[in-house]
Nucleic acid binder design. Sequence first.
DNA 1: AACTAATACATGTATATACATATAAATTAA
DNA 2: TTAATTTATATGTATATACATGTATTAGTT
Lengths: 152, 152
Amino acid sequence: MKLEQAIQSNKFKNETQKAALNVLYTAWWLKTSMSKGLKEFGLTHEQYNVLRILKGKYPEQICVRDIACRMIEKNSNVPRIVDRLEIKKLVKRTTSQFDKRETVITLTQSGILLLEASTKSIDQNMETLSVLNETESAQLNKLLEKMRSLEE
Amino acid sequence: MKLEQAIQSNKFKNETQKAALNVLYTAWWLKTSMSKGLKEFGLTHEQYNVLRILKGKYPEQICVRDIACRMIEKNSNVPRIVDRLEIKKLVKRTTSQFDKRETVITLTQSGILLLEASTKSIDQNMETLSVLNETESAQLNKLLEKMRSLEE
DNA sequence: AACTAATACATGTATATACATATAAATTAA
DNA sequence: TTAATTTATATGTATATACATGTATTAGTT
């Protein structure tokens, strides 16, 4: 769907302004698609993101700060997301032996199982959705990274 | 900044998967940049979006449903965003004469003034941030719209 | 006309973002 | 070694998203 239809507007100053809105809208669309798939596993998009980060290091442990700096949305309140994962017994919190300020998070067995099942479903979903080939995707990555080149 | 640095990971299955994450991260980055600029006006990103939609039709009135379908994030809770704009006296709520179920929203004079000031600041900010030229932006728009082509 | 269904909005709840502040532990400075 | 500073996490508050439910009004059906 063209952006014009999606947000019922065609008053863009130029292609650059439209591109910014298009990125925002596409991100919303992607998140929504993912969330739909995650629903049957009782996970939110963000909880899934945290589980994936933990999996990436498993069986190595990882502290809250390290999770935070790997999150896509940098202002995520990781302790609170971990709260919910802990209630569902998908992760375990422990105080680090080496630095008692640090809280170390570990995936539980059921966390691993749920992540595997949901990842399979999500990846399949993404596979179906992805109409861009590798060359186009690479081009998109290049443009997005150029767009962000003034990032501090 | 490369996505790899931003989220401290280089374990992407392929360029297509990376592109999805890159869109999500870029959207977060854009929102954050915009929000910083809006802060001095006491507006959130979403409140600003609603004000812009109202401006787009001004002086014509527009109901809550029409605002909602023009929002970038389609699940926005428009009545609640309007609540906050109303408290700040930036908009006015009236029940439609033609259909008493509809709530019609109008910009107040101070809403218009605030929007003008903030738009000027935001546009200037965006101008500075935009390193993509028109051709590149058009290419980006094309890729994003292709990415979403399976949209229902 | 009375009943049913649909629509528009408001409101409630859970979770998240964004940011400020509090608390405990570790590091550095005096 | 004590005091000050920094760091890691938790917690509080306002606003937002996501979705369910409630309520009033309109439209449609019998």
